[in-house]
Write a protein that binds this DNA or RNA. Structure first.
Lengths: 233, 233
DNA sequence: GTTGACAAACCGACCGGTCGGTCGGTATCT
DNA sequence: AGATACCGACCGACCGGTCGGTTTGTCAAC
């Protein structure tokens, strides 16, 4: 894009996205008014419409930003492990943890659902295809490691695993309860058994291994090696 | 309640509920306006506000009606079978099938989420506790039948099963795809394996056994024998 | 190093439209 | 007569969005 922009400009833009993400997550898209957003961001109507052409496009930006941000970070965390089984567990836990910061799975699906009726962003709104594909590949690797029953179809299993996670997240939202680690471990145990992974669910790292920025890239490269397209919203 | 009402009255009321259920399901609560509802129901503002004190209360009525209707019918269908495992499969399939008619799991959770911010209906909005309890009891019976691994906690397993179902339903909504029987069978197979049910997923009845009204009550009584309170919205 | 010009960034009053909700009246029953 | 059921004009509030104007930052010309 040839659009120039100042530091101050992108900063307000990001602030708008962050604030909107928070509000959309808590109250939903159509229940959140533009006035809510701009006043929370300390801005005015004119300021907003300088940055975004419409409320719907802002929501789209929220979707994209969420994807990029958390996705990279989660892949990096997961990539620190060797076995695919461990990577899956790490990934799931990272997603669950990121919920405080970013809109989680359930909020994303809800937002997509509400946006579906907005004509401006009619494009394909499937934020989970990425995770399904990735999980499917991890299952393939788990089979190669001898940790998973090869008779089980990886893609169907991956779809089930993601479905179950979204549902879990969703019901937690309904109960306005956090997605606590115990429940995540339960989820992992059931999913592992469902997809024929014999290995026990690996224990949580008590000492939260924070990957440095340098090894982050390596790790991300390792887990996402086989080219999953990253650019479908 | 001491409110008298004519046949015509309750008919309009039911029509409003049915129409609202449809619209809330398709577009969401706050994205559906009262004008949408009343015009779809062939009514006017005044007519509506004679039947309901507010939009939120109508939504609550949708929730309750949905619960009552489909719940009874589904329990009846499931109750036709002997083994708990078969009942579970029948129940899941009945829920999936009822999706065309009534708001399904995903729509219900979405509606509850949107209603959470409405002060009038602040009460507890947990439409899934019923299903979790019921599924837990069925798991207990499956254990007694020797079909399920007794080492697995019934309630945790039930929670997982419901979570996974809601997630599946939700992702189908997102893809604007129906909840087709093949996917439901996949779901059943994974869940059975997850919770340690050794039995194969029973085949679908090709010949849709429609229970008569008389045996419906018997069947419902059988499956819901151990007194699950039915009245928490 | 001051100046002036121009774009980026933001302001806030304002717009037409729609929202949920109200109310005085009317038709239709028993 | 009186309750039930419905009508539809109307209300203030708020919605997403527009627009002419002001501030802020950058940079070339002098």
């Amino acid at each position: 894009m040839g659009t120039r922009s100042t530091d101050r400009g992108v900063e307000t833009r990001n602030r708008l996205i962050a604030v909107a993400a928070e509000l959309f997550m808590r109250r939903g898209y159509s229940a959140t008014s533009l006035n809510d957003i701009i006043s929370a961001a300390g801005l005015t109507k004119g300021g907003f419409y300088f940055q975004f052409p419409s409320k719907a496009v802002l929501a789209l930006a929220v979707l994209q930003t969420t994807r990029g941000h958390s996705q990279d970070q989660i892949l990096a965390t997961a990539g620190l492990h060797e076995r695919a089984v461990d990577q899956i567990a790490a990934m799931v836990r990272a997603v669950a943890e990121s919920k405080g910061t970013m809109p989680a799975m359930a909020s994303l699906s809800r937002l997509c659902l509400e946006l579906a009726s907005e004509p401006e962003v009619a494009e394909e709104l499937r934020p989970f295809e990425f995770w399904i594909t990735l999980t499917g590949q991890l299952f393939d690797r788990a089979k190669a490691d001898g940790d998973m029953d090869p008779a089980i179809a990886s893609v169907a299993a991956a779809r089930f695993a993601v479905n179950a996670f979204v549902g879990t997240d969703h019901l937690c939202d309904l109960a306005s309860a956090p997605l606590d680690p115990a429940m995540v471990d339960d989820y992992l145990a059931f999913v592992f058994r469902a997809v024929g992974i014999s290995a026990d669910v690996p224990p949580r790292a008590t000492n939260q291994s924070r990957p440095s920025d340098t090894e982050t890239d390596k790790a991300a490269a390792k887990i996402g090696a086989d080219a999953i397209e990253k650019e479908t919203v």
